[in-house]
Design a protein around this nucleic acid. Structure first.
Lengths: 165, 165
DNA sequence: ATGATTAGTCTTGAAATGCAACCATTAAAT
DNA sequence: ATTTAATGGTTGCATTTCAAGACTAATCAT
């Protein structure tokens, strides 16, 4: 993942960090409580050299924080930062999509449950600042303040309501 | 992306399809209304051979559907399927994370807006079947019906509330 | 001191990527 | 009818990245 996307788009920039086969698996493990090199290694199946590289990229990107481990050897703990924990929606959205469309109801290997309602979590939704769910047909895409000419031409043909139906 | 993850996990399976530098960019373009080979080509910057390969993988995965185009040459239209449109949460979650943590307020190149409230969309949340937002500290991870021994050992050390705080 | 753990580094062949040139099909122009 | 342009690919090749395992360094238990 050396060549990087260079156009003004949050997804492109995010993929410069997350866009490979392993990085989101490492982040998943971090959410599940893994902190040590060996835990990431065995729980994901990544090779040692790549894990070394990915962990340092994630530290560099301020998604994981590396702190010396008191107890043993040359150990360090890798823990999610605030920026890393903000990826919870990405992790949940991928989990939900994979469970629904790659495994299917009744075949999910791992589930997220809401302890309050007891329900399995099956919906991830955009909401307003006061917590109202935003209907897909009301969502429009527009150029933001950081956009440039290329951005405009890229999204100008976007459907008015790209996520509707 | 030939070697594939093979352990029971929705994220791992999803990354077998989506886990590279280009695929989610192609899907983004599909949400923005791109349908033709040339549109994906110029809007993403991917090379022709990779675009060919990725599009056919996405068709194979039932995320895009390829239908002959009437108008010119050997044209085909690539359009999102139901399964593909279900990736809207992933696209929105990545967009929101990238805008917030890679660009920052006031520097977003592309924004999603709720036409009903007029608000920029900044929150993606898990909700119950009746639309109540699920608090992060109530979310627990558990083995599902499709899990196996490895799954259990992998998530057994998970914090009770992995997304909390 | 000796061996075991942990977290890395290094080396090497295999695979994926990026780039540019080339080819094929069709529609429009002449 | 023939040419030209547009579109959507395919092919070949150099470069980069990945996967796998052997090796090393630092600490800890005995």
């Amino acid at each position: 993942m050396s060549r990087k996307h260079d156009h003004p788009c949050a997804i492109a920039e995010a993929l410069n960090i997350l866009g490979d086969r392993w990085t989101l698996l490492i982040i998943r493990e971090a959410f599940y409580g893994a902190t040590r090199f060996g835990e990431f290694l065995t729980n994901t199946g990544i090779s040692r050299n790549l894990l070394t590289e990915r962990l340092s990229q994630l530290v560099e990107a301020d998604i994981l924080e590396r702190t010396p481990f008191a107890d043993r050897g040359t150990s360090h703990a890798y823990a999610l930062t605030v920026k890393g924990r903000a990826l919870d929606t990405v992790v949940m959205a991928l989990t939900e999509w994979g469970n629904s469309y790659l495994y299917g109801d009744g075949k999910e290997p791992v589930l997220a449950r809401d302890k309050a309602s007891g329900e399995i979590i099956r919906r991830i939704e955009p909401v307003t600042s006061d917590g109202q769910i935003i209907a897909r047909q009301n969502i429009v895409i527009e150029a933001g303040p950081g956009g440039d000419g290329r951005t405009l031409s890229r999204i100008s043909k976007a459907k008015s309501y790209p996520f509707a139906e």
